[in-house]
């Protein structure tokens, strides 16, 4: 029984972290909150018996993406402390609605019994391990991944390159 309560706790943690990322005033803390969400997600995925994916998620999302965001923030001129203070006040005017909507939606979903008429697919007998699925069945996706990575490299090369002096400043 405690498994379910654990799930509830982890999911609640993840949702709270997500809301925190959205509501948080300063950008830096928002990125940290995002990393927290990612960590919570990893925990949930462990619960859902998807360990490899969880580790991958943790290392890439929590790690790499946070780094990307940090560097972008570093490259851009962050607001001074005072500016962030009065900025957060004005922000609040726009964001107070989110928790209200979420509370309403949560209670509505809890209250109404959603018809679960569909039946889930029967579980496979041969418990294939992760490796051969990825390589035998999903080769096409692998090729896709290679393509995406190549495109990503070009993207980074084109976009992040400092503008060299002779380039026309249009």
């Amino acid at each position: 029984m405690n498994g379910l309560t654990l799930d509830i706790f982890l999911l609640a943690m993840m949702t709270a972290a997500a809301v925190w990322t959205v509501m948080r005033g300063s950008l830096l803390r928002a990125v940290i909150a995002l990393a927290l969400t990612s960590i919570a997600l990893t925990a949930v995925m462990f619960r859902l018996k998807a360990p490899i994916a969880a580790v991958f998620e943790l290392s890439v999302c929590a790690g790499l993406i946070t780094v990307v965001f940090m560097s972008t923030i570093a490259l851009t001129k962050p607001l001074t402390h005072k500016e962030t203070l009065d900025y957060t006040k004005t922000r609040m005017k726009r964001f107070w609605l989110l928790p209200v909507i979420m509370a309403l939606l949560g209670s509505a979903l809890l209250y109404f019994t959603i018809p679960m008429d569909f039946n889930l697919a029967a579980p496979l007998e041969t418990a294939k391990n992760f490796r051969n699925i990825l390589w035998e069945e999903r080769q096409f996706d692998l090729i896709g991944q290679i393509l995406v990575i190549l495109a990503g490299i070009f993207g980074v090369v084109v976009l992040f390159k400092e503008r060299s002096k002779d380039e026309p400043q249009d």
């Binding site: 999903r138 096409f140 996706d141 090729i143 896709g144 991944q145 495109a151």
Partner: peptide, 28 residues
């Protein structure tokens, strides 16, 4: 290549993958 992938893809997820490839290269 991405578009050829989209045309050739046989299932939903690979369709998504190649859609993303074309999208990313178009963004850039």
């Amino acid at each position: 290549a991405g578009m050829n992938g989209v045309i050739l893809s046989g299932d939903l997820f690979s369709l998504y993958v190649f859609l993303e490839i074309v999208a990313v290269s178009s963004f850039i």
